[in-house]
Design a protein around this nucleic acid. Structure first.
Lengths: 212, 212
DNA sequence: GCGGAAATTATTCAACCGTATAATAACGCC
DNA sequence: GGCGTTATTATACGGTTGAATAATTTCCGC
């Protein structure tokens, strides 16, 4: 009848572990299967601990959604270089891991299916998605200006919608059936298609030179 | 303590009502909230009735997924006319109701998030999604041939991936934020983009002349 | 500084209440 | 009377709770 031994996690670490375990559970078992007990099991703690770190399970899930969106949001501003390089980088980074893989799609679908139900998730969603297409539209306007082919806002908007749609759709295809594509196939298709839509060359596929 | 009166539903009708109520509940409350009680309430019957028509709740949900996929699958073969008209119709029908709306996205996301978890749903999924891009690739090959610009299979595949991605992505955008777009805006963007990708004119936006 | 007692708090544990699905009994229309 | 439908029950599992306890930090006399 001895109590199970445990170790006290350092400052803030356990909270992070619980959020990660929440995402793992949702990706693996769906929202229905991501019970407090299941999540605690994955995190290697007992269920009661969840409410030591979060006001409720729902709040923990909401925090987990924030984390997902922050890894998805490859902000335009995070890409360096001239207008062309920035658009290339934006497209490329949105179509490769960790943004594009099966786990991401599972998580994304799980949360999207709840956005219409849960007002708190809806607020997080709105916040996270606002600006994604605006970033892209800004990149496109910059590029057209730099190439000496400036266009009005309406045309930039149409281009941004089309290219954004293509990125989203290729992301979907990559997540749903990533094993059917070569490593860089989707990215090069996206770049070539963006060229066709813009009527501009974007240059060769950028190699990933991140130091990280 | 009198028992509530009821009426016998005609042959097969009740079953269909229950499936519709299942989809309505999933769209409105998510998979978690789509309980047998909730579904029965929406259908105007009591919970016990479900097991009279289905072996279990899971089986009812699976049947509901079959219905969703059948309304999504706008088969290429269902569109008439020459190669250009068929491609136009394929794009147009996939980007307007009932395929494209918020409810469809909620349902789609709910099921997609479960496909990796539930083997039965996975089987239904595989069956339903196979062939969508193949249909599109066939349409593209036909069109290029008809226009006297035939291409090899590899090139047709690339074009099909890109255009399919764009359709999926615009579908997503339309579902997520349909109120931000004009009625036919997404369709015309898709058609113009397909023209740019193919390097071919597709002609004016087709009016819906369905007799149905 | 240093060992150990006292305070703190992270974690476990067992039980609670609500609600889910499944199963079965009771009922009433055809 | 038979079958479709409802009402009731059984069983299981969900999130949450508060008391008990182990791990860590703080404090204090030396």
């Amino acid at each position: 009848m001895t109590r199970r031994t445990f170790h006290r996690a350092p400052e803030g670490e356990r909270r992070q572990e619980l959020i990660e375990a929440t995402l793992d559970s949702i990706a693996e078992f769906g929202l229905k299967g991501a019970t407090v007990r299941q999540i605690a099991l994955k995190a290697g703690v007992t269920a009661g601990l969840v409410r030591h770190y979060f006001d409720s399970k729902d709040q923990m899930v909401a925090d987990a959604y924030r984390l997902v969106l922050s890894t998805f949001a490859v902000k335009a501003i995070e890409v360096d270089g001239d207008a062309r390089a920035r658009l290339r980088g934006f497209i490329s980074r949105n179509l490769t891991a960790p943004v594009a893989n099966g786990r991401s799609l599972s998580l994304w679908a799980s949360f999207i299916s709840q956005v219409r139900v849960d007002p708190e998730l809806a607020a997080i969603h709105r916040e996270g998605y606002l600006g994604f297409r605006n970033d892209l539209q800004g990149l496109i306007a910059d590029l057209l200006a730099a190439e000496g082919k400036p266009h009005g806002e309406a045309e930039c908007r149409r281009l941004a919608i089309a290219i954004n749609g293509m990125i989203d759709g290729l992301w979907l295809e990559g997540c749903l059936a990533g094993e059917l594509f070569e490593e860089t196939e989707l990215v090069s298709i996206a770049l070539a298609s963006a060229e066709a839509l813009l009527g501009l060359p974007l240059g060769p596929l950028e190699q990933n030179t991140d130091a990280s």
